[in-house]
Amino acid sequence: MWEYTDKVKEHFLNPKNAGEIENPDAVAEVGSIACGDALKLTMKLDENKRIVDAKFKTFGCASAIASASALTELLKGKTIEEAEKITNQEIADYLGGLPPEKMHCSVLGQEALEKAIENYRGVSHRKPEEVIICACFGVTDGEIEHAVRQNHLTSIEEVTNYTKAGGGCGNCHEKIQAIIDRVYQTKERQAQPAERPRLSNLQKIRLIEETIDREIRPSLKHDGGDIELVDVVGNRVLVALRGACAVCHASQLTMKGFVQGKLQEFVAPELVVEEVAS
């Protein structure tokens, strides 16, 4: 059953500000189809840096749509400086609250807002040293730490509810706990050795080839496409898409979602897939 407030239902059934502004002054896209929700936010500002219009497009569940609708309502009429102060909790509060396991929908809204403001200012303050902690949902240590600090999260389950990190294979739970511990200045737990055996390079390449043959190629062929393994450099798997995949507008989704997902599931969670020109 859906434990949504009337306000969530209202914004889901009749979303405010759905769509996309032409020639926006600020634009941001966050999330991905593989992760199950994504949000595109566009904003128009006047000469006083006041947001005169904000629109959204959302792929996701009812609370993701409602959160985006709420965000755009909160944004309209605010200056950039005022908008910058909006937290994910404010989005949730505007909706009369969200179920705990749906808080990540409000976090997605806040992430889109931050990114849109960066886009407006033409700067990016994403620190290059951030590393992906949750490979399933592509969540970085910086994002987890931000969510932990802002929402006073104390358990892995809460981190999953807010960021999705740890909600897939679960291999990153130790690392998430370490971030929580670090934030609260508790004694850092010793990292447990990974459960999977370490693979030699040769074993890794063989396993990647096997996984492509068994798990990936048949699906691509089914849609008239194909894939070729070009090289493996450390944890980077370089591949080329062939046939229908090479010209498909969803090929990036295929890459990041399907191909990388399968390789992470069957070979090693730290693998990253990159497409190279054929």
Binding site: A34, G36, C61, T160, G168, E215, I216, S219, A250, F258
Partner: peptide, 23 residues
């Protein structure tokens, strides 16, 4: 079989085993 209804954050294990694309 979507993530939000499967009780986890990933779509159904059945559809994933079949290689149904995330889209």
């Amino acid at each position: 079989g979507s993530a939000c209804t499967s009780g986890s954050l990933q779509p159904s294990h059945v559809l994933r085993a079949m290689g149904v694309p995330y889209t």
